[in-house]
Design a protein around this nucleic acid. Sequence first.
DNA 1: TTAAATACGACTATATTAGTCCAGTTTATA
DNA 2: TATAAACTGGACTAATATAGTCGTATTTAA
Lengths: 133, 133
Amino acid sequence: MVRFTKKVEYALISLRHIANAKDEIITAKQISNKFNIPYELLAKVLQKLKKEKILESNQGVNGGYKLIKQLNEISLSSLIDVIEGKLAIVECLHEKDINDCFISDTCNIKSPINKMQYELENLLKHKMVSDFV
Amino acid sequence: MVRFTKKVEYALISLRHIANAKDEIITAKQISNKFNIPYELLAKVLQKLKKEKILESNQGVNGGYKLIKQLNEISLSSLIDVIEGKLAIVECLHEKDINDCFISDTCNIKSPINKMQYELENLLKHKMVSDFV
DNA sequence: TTAAATACGACTATATTAGTCCAGTTTATA
DNA sequence: TATAAACTGGACTAATATAGTCGTATTTAA
């Protein structure tokens, strides 16, 4: 299947929302309430965005999140990477697997799949979160 | 995650192999052996390709499969459709779900996701199985 | 009549995704 | 300085999707 995960969806929704709020600090709870997203799950997504320096956080009362990157600096590809690790359209393109594929010799779609991977990555790389308007 | 399923992989491998064999009839067992693909699973994939008139089959001794479409007439998009049903990058784009999304009013990424869906479909629609060479 | 093939539904196993629980830490402010 | 509001983070469970298996039926060349 070719589908974005909920986590990526939640990240997009959150980034849009935080960006719209300008410099106002936004809490996980606000987003969770407004968009009916499970709080704990959302919190984890935001934490990842923070680790990648897309968001900045303040703890404690009046704490919350603020954007420190422009939405047009964040590609969909990097967002997916951040949230669910490097994308690979088939198992065998994951680095760890590349050597223990046991049909590798006979496999007749290796190089085309590589090309496809490249094109897909390219699409996602040039698709910025800001395009999502 | 954005990944092709094994079934789609197996379909690609099979189509390539059958196409390479020219007019020779190929059995599921041959493909299963050569590429180490579980026989029963492969059989089901081939049956789907048959139902979609991509392959033609003969039962009984000396039976097997033959291509009845050119590889350049089969888009990746249609192949995925055949094998795992209509693709949607997020749940809410599945027709059955479209009316029971309960953040639909507040959702701030509806239209961008639609555009993304369109672009991805477009990429897959113009990517033919024959491109996989 | 038999063996080699496809056809197909029901089932089980495994992996991934989604969501929950709980115990922290930080910090403004009453 | 106590408290409540917020983030942090690990371990867990639940739900779903994918992968694979089993059994039985049907077809057909030799």
